[in-house]
Structures are given as C-alpha cells and as structure tokens.
Design a protein around this nucleic acid. Sequence first.
DNA 1: TCTGGGGTCCTAGGACCC
DNA 2: TCTGGGGTCCTAGGACCC
Length: 413
Amino acid sequence: MLALCDCDNFFVSCERLYRPELRSRPVVVLSNNDGCIVSRSAEVKAMGIPMGQPYFQIQGLLRKKGVAVCSGNLVMYKEVSMKVMKLLSRFTGGMEEYSIDEAFLSLPVAAEDPLGYVSGIRAKVESWIGIPVSIGVAATKTLSKLATEMAKKDASGVMEITGRNARDVLDNTGIGDIWGIGRKTAEALNRDGIYSAGHFVDRDSVWVKRRLTVRGLMTQLELKGQPCLPIVAGTAPPKSIQVSRTWGNVLESFEDVCLAMTDNVVKAARQLRQDNLAARGMSVFLRHGYRHHGEHGYIENDVYFDSPAQCDIELIGAVKSLLGKIYRPGHGYTQGGVTLRDFSDARFRQRELFDEGGYERRSKLERFSRAVDEINGHFGERAIFPASLAVKDKKWRPNRKHLSEKRGGFVNG
DNA sequence: TCTGGGGTCCTAGGACCC
DNA sequence: TCTGGGGTCCTAGGACCC
C-alpha cells in the first residue's frame, strides 16, 4: 500500500502559520506581480471563486466579503515545505517529494491498519508544524490521488481505496478528475462515450493504448490497482531550470530589460550551482504588450556554449548577447525569462581538446562563484550580487502590495 | 492598467547511419 | 512484376502536472 499526503490550501496555510489572526478569516494568496489567485482557504472556495482568477477582476468582491489578501512568498512556503517533508520522511522508508505540498509515501508492510497509521501521521504534521494535511491510501499512485481528493472532503482527513470500494469510487468519479487525464483528453474520451473512471477501466486496454499512448494505458492499469508508476525516492536533478517574471512596470530601454533579465539569470544560476550542475544550453524570451490588450508578442532566442557554464559572469554575458538579438526599441516589455538546459555534472568537467587557456579561466570563475555562494549562504541571499543590479529604483520589481511582514527570519525574496 | 511560474514526458517525422 | 531491413538521434509540438 502507498499513501499520498497533500497539504490543505498550502500557501494559505503557510500564511496562517505566521499570522494567526488569519485563521478565522477567509484568505487568498496571489501569484507573482499580484496577478492571479493561486491558493484559497476553504471559505473562499465555498464562495465559488476559482483558482487562477485574475486578481484585478475580483478585487472589489474580495474586499466586500472581508477576504484577506496575501502576495505570494515562495521563499517562505519552500521553507515550510522542507519542514513538512522532513517530518514525513521519518514515517516511511520510501518517500517521493512530488511537489511543494505533496509527497507519496510507501507504507511499512507491518502497518496492519493503514488508515490508522496515516491518521497518526496527519495528527503529527498538524500539531508539530501547524500545517493541515489530507492523506489518501491505495495500491497505486493514481488511486491514492483519488483517495486524497476524497479525504479532503471528509472530516477525518484520511481515506482509503481498496478492492471493496474501488468500483463504486470509479463509477462516481468523472474521467476528467483522474490524475493524468487533462482537459483535452477528457473531452476526447467524452466523445467516445467515456464519462466516468468506471467507463474508462472497462475499455479494452489495446484500444486505450492506441487512443492515449502508454501514459493512458498506465493510468488505466493503475486505476485497476496494478502499479505502473513507482515511488521514486530522493530528488532527481532537474533537466531544465527556468526563471521568468512578469515585471511590475513596462520596460522600454535595452538597459532596463538587461537588468531585469540579469536578475532572472542570477537566480537561475544560483539554483544551477546548488544542484552541482553546469548548462550547455540557454534560451531567453521576452514578451511585449499585454496578452489580452491590443498589440503584443513573444520572442525567443537560444545559444549553445562550447563547454558547460555555471558562473554568473559568463551567463550574464550570454543573456546580454541574446537580448541584443531579440530586443527592438519602441516595444513595451512586460515579461521575460531565462532557461538553462542540457546539464552535466559540474563536478566532472570534460576538458576541451583545443582549449587556449579556457579551462583555467573557467576554473577561476567557478571558484569565484563558489565563494560568492558561500558568502551569501552565510550572510544572506543579498550579501554579494552583481554591481549592475545595485540600482535604487528597480523598475522591474514585481508588485507585492500585500506581502506579510517579515517573521521568523524568512527572507521575502 | 490590468491575467503566474516552473516543470516533465511522449510522439511523429525528418535526417542520418550501416 | 516490380526495389531490404534495422537502427539512432534530434526537434517541435502537444498534453499534462503542481
């Protein structure tokens, strides 16, 4: 048996952790730049306010209903997440951190009463950390996802799908509510007369594979109780790292765009080095204008390095040169991002055959970056940063008008 | 004035190899 | 009447997830 532990309205719960006065109020958390609603307390869900709703459209209603509004603070949520994960890992040999607020747990074989066992876990996370969670138990990941959705609707906060109730559950679950079946696939299946998960498992598996490829087949098998998706313990290194932002102001000049993108690439590069990776490929994109408002567009360009890079100085230079190719004066730029990819392990660098001293130059840069990272690790994220970013008026800084006060040492980066 | 950000996996088709 | 057989690698695009 395995279990899925999912934090309830995670971002809202994090805000409530440090601002107890919010516990008795309806709360929403906003995305970057105070753009959309990305987390809602139970009261707000009950009001019918959907996930992803643009904030500006609903600002008035929220105020009228007395809903507390928080700008998102991912740095803080990540720290809370790490505490939850650490605690969860104490209860199981095999655990997969699936997202910032979810983990799959393989249950000890000895657990004779799985539901009782996960109830214990749930109570401890709630009382020791203060984050409410729901836990679903089943034989496969796909079924445990479903069990967790049911757990969220039950006062106990835990639920199990077994051979006894599985058929009933599947018959009462819309096909689009199954993990792995998205909107497009659900619509297509509806056209074939499949509306419930029960309809889906009844179809011939050859037909399912032809129709939905192997992922669809795995979903079907998992719904029948046959595990296809293993729990992957530990965290795999990422295959790409992207940092993009919608900016607080429209940026016109090349200099402003460069600074904003420098900020992005420095964040990406820090992540890269933390994971001991170096990148062969990089791409940048810019968006100008507003998507739902007249003239707008998207431009992108990429580059491959002769050898893998991981230093701020190198990567900033590459970003500037790419921007030089795509930037056009006269546009108002609203958003931009940097993606690093094609990673290799930075600890085992392949030397170039025809190298002209590049290896030594790069080693020096790497030592420099490591020193900067160490100092920042010690004295805080902002102890050392590129001088170009040392400007008073950061025009690109996103709006965060509802940021909670700094508490408990969280850096509101 | 105005709508987030960050990922993964799979497939088809083209190009190429022996 | 009618031209082999078996592969790999890469990319773009689609779909999905949180």
